[in-house]
């Protein structure tokens, strides 16, 4: 026989256990929320870049905070659109942007100004890498658009850009040449660079684009598509980024890569802290800019980095485009012309 007094504690237990489970659950949720608050989301490009971000930047961040960042592979347009979509609670905390998107994001109030008291390695980044962005972003690494060519087909590659353009117009390379399109993410910068070769005349540059068109296999928009065209020997001359070009040439004896005179334009990846992102984001930015991570990154992706304390080994230095060979585009002078350039490109270059 069960006594009433024995039932009561059992009932109490029955009431207490669910309450305890709820309390523990709430505690767990709170703890999970706290952990999530420390979790940051950052951006990288694909391929070897992603590997470098994991090995160099994320590893440093984990060493400092004990937490792994979530790394997303996104292009600049996707990054800025995602930040715009949720400004109060951004889904990306440390952004990797193109130079123009970084200026736009700064103007739109989507970014926090970089602060050397929160990311001390910023002190070793020369001002030239931040000035045009009004300290809303810093260059993380940079490259240049150079020329790749098929050594078996092109015995004497043109020494300078103007000769390359004139030879292409003359049909000297058949229609086996590929230049970037204005509609490629860094196309407007390339167009600006060409204007510097033609007395600042946009009209002349567009006339050259138009005259080259019959002998251009494709004005490329997608970088993967471009390198595939060259790798499958669809084109003999390709205007492409230096790091990947040198790396390709190193692995394929038939391919060559060089910087035509008078140099190239600087093509950079911009690092920025998104407004309303967790404070831990500063740790990641500081990691990216630390001399150790910067050197590791340069070694892997073969692009120059910006921390002035980085000392490149000789073999690496040989394949990095020197700073004196690149011109930083004057973004503020031409970025408002981009929509008109794109419209002109679409309508005129057929």
């Amino acid at each position: 026989m069960i006594l009433q007094s024995e039932i009561r504690p059992a009932r109490k237990r029955a009431r207490f256990l669910p309450a305890l489970a709820i309390a523990l659950g709430a505690l767990g949720l709170f703890a999970a929320h706290d952990a999530a608050a420390q979790k940051i989301t950052v951006v990288a490009s694909g391929g070897i870049w992603l590997e470098s971000a994991k090995q160099n930047f994320a590893a440093c961040y984990k060493e400092r905070t004990g937490s792994d960042p979530d790394i997303l592979v996104l292009n600049s347009g996707e990054v800025i659109n995602r930040i715009r979509a949720n400004k109060e609670n951004p889904s990306i905390h440390v952004a990797l942007l193109s130079e123009i998107d970084a200026i736009r994001a700064g103007r739109e109030g989507l970014l926090d100004k970089l602060d050397a008291s929160k990311a001390p390695n910023l002190k070793d980044v020369p001002e030239v890498f931040r000035k045009q962005w009004d300290d809303y972003a810093t260059i993380q690494n940079f490259g240049a658009m150079i020329v790749m060519y098929n050594k078996d087909k092109i015995k004497e590659p043109p020494k300078d850009w103007k000769t390359l353009i004139d030879n292409t117009i003359a049909g000297k390379y058949g229609n086996r040449v590929s230049f970037p399109a204005v509609t490629m993410a860094w196309g407007p910068q390339f167009t600006w660079f060409l204007t510097t070769l033609y007395n600042g005349s946009e009209d002349e540059v567009f006339a050259k684009y138009k005259a080259m068109a019959p002998n251009i296999a494709k004005y490329w928009v997608n970088p993967v598509d471009a390198i595939n065209m060259f790798a499958t020997k669809e084109v003999d001359i390709l205007v492409y980024w230096d790091g990947r070009a040198y790396d390709f040439a190193k692995q394929n004896a038939w391919a060559g890569a060089y910087i035509p005179d008078p140099g190239a334009f600087q093509s950079a990846a911009m690092l920025a802290k998104v407004k309303n992102a967790p404070e831990a984001s500063w740790q990641y930015i500081d990691c990216v800019l630390s001399p150790k991570a910067q050197l590791g990154h340069a070694s892997m992706i073969k692009y120059p980095v910006v921390n002035s304390k980085v000392v490149y080994p000789d073999d690496l230095k040989a394949v990095l485009t020197p700073l004196e060979k690149v011109r930083q585009p004057e973004f503020l002078k031409f970025m408002d012309k981009i929509p008109a350039w794109i419209e002109r490109w679409n309508k005129e270059i057929q």
Partner: peptide, 12 residues
């Protein structure tokens, strides 16, 4: 493709 251009390049 035109929509993509306007969003990602022209920011229009």
């Amino acid at each position: 493709v035109m929509v993509y251009q306007q969003l990602n390049l022209s920011s229009d």
